[in-house]
């Protein structure tokens, strides 16, 4: 017997669950941030997280950036040449890379790489009692594990995005000059004429937000995982999926904030 109200109940349950999860994440993030303001600080943990976040993500982010810059140059050439607007390509490449693709693609790649690793590491520590053990050794696990990772995310992803911006423009430059026959110095001149400081700053602010979201999702899902190997697996999946969706959602919100007039 199917009760027609079941459907309504399901909507209610889903809504309550979403509200509860949002609140839990917000409290978790606030607690993590508050530990950044109160000593003791674990500089070693921060540096380890920073290296993991930035240095080891460089190859993946660099490759992504070069190819996306190159693809934009190629795609916009095939489209724009029909209208004789090829001269706009340098501007299209630099603005799309610096404003959008650099932060978003770097964010998504780092979410897959670092967010997943974080969730798996913290999740394993949770199910093997290592997080409880920290508490018995006069160490607050939020302060020791979560706070350094949040800070590392906020700092590392903008650094990666600077690299991604440069390499993305370089990718576009390579294709434009080597394949599409642009004049190198002319291409660079129009690139720098169009780019403003505000574009770069907005892109880096996005990157910092994405870095925070990646670390927050990785830590939250790992920290709260339960139920052994399977729980760690689903925590890892949740961390990557949630971080990716949040990156795209916040990308829209921040674009609206920075660029919509």
């Amino acid at each position: 017997m199917i009760d027609p109200l079941d459907a309504v109940a399901a909507v209610g349950r889903g809504t309550l669950g979403a509200v509860r999860a949002t609140g839990a994440v917000a409290l978790f993030g606030a607690a993590g941030l508050s530990h950044l303001l109160r000593p003791p600080f674990y500089g070693r943990m921060f540096l380890l997280a920073l290296v993991e976040f930035s240095y080891f993500s460089l190859p993946v982010v660099a490759l992504t950036a070069v190819f996306s810059g190159a693809v934009i140059a190629l795609q916009s050439f095939t489209g724009f040449s029909r209208f004789g607007a090829e001269s706009a390509i340098a501007g299209i490449v630099v603005l799309s890379v610096v404003r959008e693709l650099g932060p978003v693609l770097a964010g998504l790649m780092v979410a897959g790489r670092v967010g997943a690793a974080m969730a798996a590491e913290l999740g394993t520590m949770r199910v093997t009692d290592q997080i409880d053990a920290l508490g018995t050794l006069s160490t607050n696990p939020m302060k020791y594990l979560v706070a350094p990772r949040l800070l590392a995310g906020v700092i590392a992803v903008p650094l990666l995005v600077v690299v991604a911006d440069i390499l993305g423009v370089a990718g576009g430059f390579l294709v434009s000059t080597a394949k599409l026959g642009f004049n190198p110095s002319g291409y660079l001149t129009s690139t720098f004429n169009i780019l403003t400081t505000a574009d770069v700053v907005a892109g880096l602010a996005q990157a910092a937000t994405f870095g925070f979201l990646i670390a927050l999702m990785g830590c939250y899902h790992g920290y709260n995982s339960k139920g052994g190997a399977q729980g760690v697996g689903s925590a890892t999946t949740s961390a990557v999926v949630a971080a990716s969706i949040l990156i795209l959602a916040f990308d829209y919100v921040l674009t609206e904030l920075f660029f919509a007039r």
Partner: peptide, 20 residues
């Protein structure tokens, strides 16, 4: 509470050693 906890040591069932 943390000060009280600092005076408690615990041996966990599976060791719970930090593997990193």
């Amino acid at each position: 509470r943390e000060q009280v906890n600092a005076r408690i040591g615990m041996l966990f069932q599976a060791g719970a050693l930090f593997d990193s």
